[in-house]
């Protein structure tokens, strides 16, 4: 990576650090005292339900919105005072397609390249069109493209100026699974080249692709850390249950004290709780009935997020309280 600190083995400064970031729209506190650090070169997943403040946070990080409180740096520039310098090195892909529908694909890319004053603009744009596989359709109006193509084109547009940091706001919303997979392949290639990627999503399979994850709800961060450690941080214990008449069992388990979550995955139930011994006792009592097969499993991200989302609904349980 080119921007590493001159000091020999010091870890590079994070691409983004924010502390106490807050934003209010009218009476509504949309982002509330958010602390976050995005390590350089990582893929950082930003998760949370709709309206939890993900978009607002991303906009504050790249200088599109001014925070009401808090401070932060992005690529070494102050997010309050050096927005223009941040903009030059950041590629930002909006949630909604926001290139010009009445311009052709080539005209759109050319416009963006001019905006960033990309050297060798023509060649760069032609190369981007070739990479996209859109060279023969470059004069087609962007508005006539399908959702998947629009998304690929938007990604190509925000890569034209070789940004050091990519901010992707729900990039795969409304895109078919094949296009999503290809999109993530591209993200991993970029990450391998040293580009830092901050991506917001609410697809759990996408969360699993991230190196780090932060989960926010109601503008507050509930938890963050390396993706693999999230379930352990929550302290979730999970049992896998299969057997006949799962629907009835599901209802029964949901009313059982000590069971905090019952999630159905196809023909099995994942029964989770934060108190391991209590859950084990419940499991044993059910095993004694002999109707179902119970087996303890490692809690995965999937369970972790269902758990977080359920918790987010009944206001906040402080993340500390969860990490029992």
């Amino acid at each position: 990576m080119s921007v590493e600190a001159p000091g020999d083995n010091l870890p590079p400064a994070p691409a983004i650090t924010v502390t106490g970031l807050s934003k209010r729209f009218g009476d509504k506190l949309v982002v509330d005292g958010l602390d976050m650090a995005v390590p350089r070169g990582s893929i950082y997943g930003f998760l949370g339900p709709n309206g939890s403040g993900k978009t607002t946070t991303i906009r504050m990080m790249c200088g599109l919105l001014t925070p009401d409180a808090g401070s932060g740096q992005c690529l070494g520039f102050d997010i309050r005072t050096e927005a223009l310098k941040i903009k030059e090195q950041v590629g930002y892909m909006t949630q909604k397609f926001s290139l010009y529908e009445d311009l052709s694909i080539r005209e759109n890319l050319d416009f963006i390249a001019r905006m960033y004053q990309v050297p060798g603009r023509r060649e760069r744009v032609e190369a981007a069109l070739a990479d996209l596989g859109l060279s023969d359709r470059k004069n087609q109006l962007a508005g006539t493209l399908s959702g998947g193509w629009k998304q690929r084109m938007a990604l190509a547009a925000c890569l034209l100026h070789d940004p050091k940091l990519l901010l992707l706001d729900e990039p795969t919303a409304g895109v078919d699974p094949k296009a999503r997979r290809e999109f993530w392949d591209e993200i991993r290639r970029l990450s391998a080249r040293g580009v830092t990627v901050l991506v917001s999503t609410h697809y759990m399979d996408e969360a699993a692709q991230c190196d780090f994850i932060a989960y926010i709800a109601y503008g507050k961060k509930l938890i963050d850390g390396p993706a693999a450690e999230i379930p352990a941080m929550i302290g979730l214990h999970t049992w896998r249950v299969d057997g006949p008449d799962l629907a009835k069992l599901e209802v029964e388990l949901k009313d059982t004290n000590g069971v905090e979550q019952v999630a159905r995955f196809g023909a099995v139930l994942h029964v989770s709780g934060t108190d391991g011994p209590v859950l084990e006792a419940i499991a044993k009592s059910h095993v004694a009935r002999g109707t179902h097969h119970w087996q303890e499993k490692k809690a995965e991200l999937e369970e972790a997020f269902i758990f977080l989302m359920a918790g987010a609904k009944d206001n906040f349980v402080a993340p500390e309280a969860r990490k029992s």
Binding site: K87, V90, Y116
Partner: peptide
């Protein structure tokens, strides 16, 4: 309205 303003001001313009 079309959201293109967001793209526009995300550039250093």
């Amino acid at each position: 309205e079309k959201g293109t303003m967001e793209t526009l001001i995300a550039t250093p313009v």
